[in-house]
Simulated assay, not measured.
Amino acid sequence: MKKFLTMLTLAAGMTTLHAADLKGNALAARDKVAMCIGCHGIPGYRTAFPEVYHVPKLGGQNAQYIENALKEYAKGNRKFQTMHGIAASLSDQDIADIAAYYSQQTAATPPNPDK
């Protein structure tokens, strides 16, 4: 039993280390953000489904905030059906890359520059 608990503890620690070691790659995200630009790339955009909602610009936002928000949408803890569907389709690496991409921009950066 002691051996089993030790192995379980080590496995849990390795999973935590792997998740913490994930580094976002802004360049890798350039093709991944196409689904984001349709709403988040339009100044002053408001959605009409499932409710009227002012869509925030993401450029310049803190990477950790974006990662946390996407993970919360994926789990369903943040309630917005469109974002849940998108976030649930992303891997942890996709989320880290997208967060890095937007954190390196400003609110004035045009969507997907130099593409």
Rank of each mutant, 00 (worst) to 15 (best):
R30M: 15
L58V: 06
T109F: 04
T106L: 04
L10W: 12
G24M: 05
A28Y: 11
T9P: 03
M1S: 14
A96E: 02
S89D: 02
A87H: 01
V33N: 05
T16R: 01
G38C: 05
M14E: 05
T15E: 09
N25H: 11
A69P: 00
E51W: 12
N77I: 02
P43S: 02
R46Q: 14
Y45E: 08
S91H: 11
G44C: 04
T6N: 12
L22M: 12
M14T: 12
K2M: 14
N62T: 04
Y65M: 11
I95E: 01
G41A: 04
I95K: 00
T6L: 15
D114R: 08
Y45V: 02
D97K: 00
A99T: 04
M1Q: 13
S89L: 03
M7A: 15
K79W: 08
R78T: 02
Q105A: 07
P50Y: 01
K32Y: 09
A19R: 12
T109A: 08
K57L: 07
G41R: 07
A19N: 10
K3N: 14
Q105I: 02
M14H: 04
Y102S: 01
P111N: 04
A99C: 09
T106D: 06
E72P: 00
Q104R: 14
I42S: 06
G44R: 03
Q105H: 10
Y65S: 10
M83N: 00
L70I: 07
H40K: 03
Y45W: 11
F80W: 08
V52L: 11
S91Y: 10
M35S: 14
A63P: 10
T82H: 08
G76I: 03
T106A: 03
K115R: 15
M83Q: 03
P113D: 05
F4H: 13
Y102I: 00
Q61F: 07
I86P: 09
Q64T: 13
A29Y: 02
I86D: 03
L8A: 15
Q104T: 11
V33A: 06
Q61Y: 08
D114G: 10
A100F: 02
I42Y: 04
Y65Q: 07
T47G: 09
D97E: 10
L8K: 02
E51I: 06
A69C: 07
L90F: 10
E67A: 12
C39T: 07
G44A: 05
A11R: 01
G60E: 09
N77T: 04
I66E: 08
Q105L: 13
I98Y: 00
H40G: 05
P110A: 09
P110Q: 13
A48C: 03
F49L: 12
